[in-house]
């Protein structure tokens, strides 16, 4: 006999949304394989894939370091450190990401370069030519837009990740810190060996979701003429006027990457929950 209730509840819980996405993705790839216009657009756009991926990965790596440091700074008992970390986070949160990318690439990075040059000049005057060599002779035009884009993305996401790390650390009961300190561990040792391993585990899904967000937001670096998939799509449409083919392909490319990643995050999340 058929178990109708079982079948009904299975049908209700089935991830139909995923079938929809699969339909869109496969449909588009069918067009790419069969239609010459789509095929040409895809061939052009996929050249930007390595830039999109390498920009995202390197920016996220740097953002993890910035985020961890700023997150620790946010809960520091040192007033100065805490305020610097909070200032950084609030600055980033108060400015639209697109604007921030312009500001960092066009204002902040050149200012840093001038600062380093000035430092180098001072070191040279004071008879430290070895150190001076490290800091001078960098010229603004030598800092490639890709590097500026990575800096901008990393600085922006560093602030988001800082809040994730802070929340993760604060979710660990204060008894853990007390137990570690009572055994003679320093604050840093207690963080490193007791608090952070637990906190990072708790925020792994949130970090994964931010990685996906960053992959999408990496499209913003196209405004700096970095040749990621969004930028090459714009270049392609400028030459061919095939807007529909190009932007459909672009959207489906992002969708394919983000859906794969978000399924990965869901799997990790489920594994973590099972181990609790």
């Amino acid at each position: 006999m058929l178990n109708w209730n079982g079948i009904r509840s299975r049908l209700r819980d089935y991830p139909w949304w995923l079938v929809g996405i699969l339909f869109l993705v496969l449909g588009t790839f069918y067009l790419i394989l069969t239609q010459p216009t789509f095929n040409e657009a895809f061939a052009f756009i996929k050249a930007g894939l390595s830039v999109t991926l390498s920009t995202t990965f390197s920016a996220f790596g740097i953002a993890l370091v910035i985020g961890l440091l700023a997150g620790l700074g946010r809960i520091s008992s040192n007033v100065l450190i805490r305020n610097i970390a909070t200032l950084y986070i609030e600055l980033v949160r108060g400015i639209p990401m697109l604007v921030l990318i312009f500001v960092i690439a066009i204002v902040v990075v050149p200012a840093m370069v001038s600062g380093l040059n000035a430092l180098g000049a001072t070191l040279a005057e004071n008879g430290l030519p070895f150190l001076a060599a490290l800091f001078s002779g960098i010229e603004n035009k030598e800092v490639p837009m890709t590097a500026r884009a990575i800096t901008a993305l990393a600085a922006t996401y560093g602030a988001f990740l800082a809040e994730i790390f802070r929340a993760g650390i604060q979710s660990i009961g204060k008894g853990q810190m007390e137990a570690a300190r009572s055994q003679g561990m320093s604050y840093v040792q207690a963080m490193r060996y007791v608090i952070l391993p637990q906190a990072v585990r708790n925020v792994l899904p949130a970090l994964g979701n931010d990685f996906i967000s960053m992959l999408k937001d990496s499209s913003l670096v196209s405004v700096l003429a970095v040749r990621d998939i969004t930028q090459v799509t714009r270049l392609y449409t400028g030459q061919t006027f095939r807007y529909q083919e190009a932007f459909t392909t672009l959207a489906i490319l992002y969708l394919t990457m983000t859906v794969i990643l978000s399924l990965l995050v869901k799997t990790i999340e489920g594994k973590l929950r099972r181990n609790e």
Partner: peptide
């Protein structure tokens, strides 16, 4: 030191 809630390291 031994605590009321043990405070073992769960990881």
């Amino acid at each position: 030191m031994v605590f009321q809630h043990f405070n073992l390291y769960p990881h």
